[in-house]
């Protein structure tokens, strides 16, 4: 991170979004340094996209504001728009135009100087390996190719800040790693500030700093390493014949705080290897399986929210909330996200 300056390129102050009585984003505040790779981590419906859409000026702000590259998102929309690039969660290409036409259109919209236009288009096409397909209609592209084209497009006007809203959602692992390679390359080469939302743990690991978001609030914000240290040592995870009794016993014998979820129980100790051997002998409940891991961001999430970070574990209220949010936004409630 040698290239990082100390300038705060994004300053968010009490950013709030309300839909009627439902508050999607509850007054979040934080700042991002220039050149940083910053991530919003959280389950679907946590308010990540809503926050990003407000910062990108496509969604109105209920309260508070954000300053991007020195411009206020509520007052100086045009200047903010010039400074940012965004890759939306949902596709936003014109499928009836060719790849080249989509890129040209973008250059025109952002007033990229005519003299450098073709050169930049070729550059991004080359980088995303789409140069052979530049004259094909976008509707003939695969999901991964469309995503790459969107990333190529987002970079054409050399934005100061690049927003990526779930950049690899629904893509196969190979395409995902490809796209990450491009993102890291660009960030290094152009010193672009990258702001990303994701619900994939491994993607959050790439970030310089991660903010965990849940139910419209920032739960915690730090570097992935610090967050993992905060979990405290190694995580021991086990399944027993009687989880309830095990939780009580561990609490009583070792004075440890135990988290219980569908997959069993887990807790963290300073040094897992030394702890485990006597523990297995001493626990009066029969152990079905036991394992130890260094903490991951999933454990961090678990610690700060009390839940595991998984799509399928959205509670019914979360799903309702999601549906409400979409129908208010005028989207079909059961369409793809």
């Amino acid at each position: 991170m040698t290239k990082n300056s100390n300038r705060d390129i994004i300053v968010v102050k009490n950013l709030t979004k309300r839909y009627g009585s439902f508050t999607a984003v509850k007054g979040i505040s934080f700042s991002v340094k220039e050149g940083e790779l910053f991530g919003f981590l959280g389950p679907n419906g946590a308010g990540k996209s809503t926050s990003i859409n407000m910062m990108c000026t496509v969604l109105s702000v209920t309260e508070g504001t954000a300053i991007l590259n020195g411009h206020d998102i509520t007052r100086d929309k045009a200047r903010v728009r010039e400074a940012i690039g965004i890759i939306f969660q949902d596709p936003s290409l014109d499928e009836n135009l060719t790849a080249l036409e989509n890129l040209k259109l973008h250059c025109v919209m952002y007033k990229v100087d005519k003299s450098v236009r073709m050169q930049r288009i070729m550059e991004v096409l080359e980088m995303t390996e789409l140069i052979d397909r530049k004259d094909s209609l976008v509707k003939t592209f695969s999901g991964g190719m469309k995503r790459r084209l969107e990333i190529a497009r987002g970079l054409l006007h050399y934005p100061k800040i690049l927003f990526l809203d779930e950049p690899t959602i629904g893509l196969d692992p190979q395409t995902r790693s490809h796209i990450w390679k491009y993102i890291m390359d660009i960030k290094e080469r152009e010193n672009i500030t990258v702001f990303l939302t994701t619900h994939y743990m491994d993607e959050a690991e790439y970030c310089d700093r991660v903010a965990i978001m849940d139910h419209g609030e920032l739960v915690v914000l730090d570097t992935p390493a610090n967050l993992k240290n905060a979990v405290g040592g190694d995580v021991i995870r086990l399944r027993t014949e009687d989880d309830e009794m095990a939780v009580a016993e561990i609490g009583k014998r070792y004075g440890l705080a135990v988290t219980r979820d569908r997959d069993g129980i887990s807790f963290s100790v300073a040094s897992g290897e030394e702890f485990m051997a006597p523990f297995i002998k001493e626990l009066p409940v029969k152990i079905l399986s036991i394992g130890m891991s260094r903490p991951t961001l999933n454990d961090v999430f678990l610690k700060f929210t009390g839940r595991a970070l998984r799509d399928e574990e959205l509670s019914s209220t979360d799903q309702l909330r999601e549906t409400m949010k979409r129908s208010r936004a005028g989207l079909r409630p059961f369409g793809r996200s």
Binding site: V58, R81, E82, S92, D94
Partner: peptide
């Protein structure tokens, strides 16, 4: 696609 246009300056 409208989002692409609306987020541009």
């Amino acid at each position: 696609f409208m989002k692409e246009i609306m987020v541009s300056p």
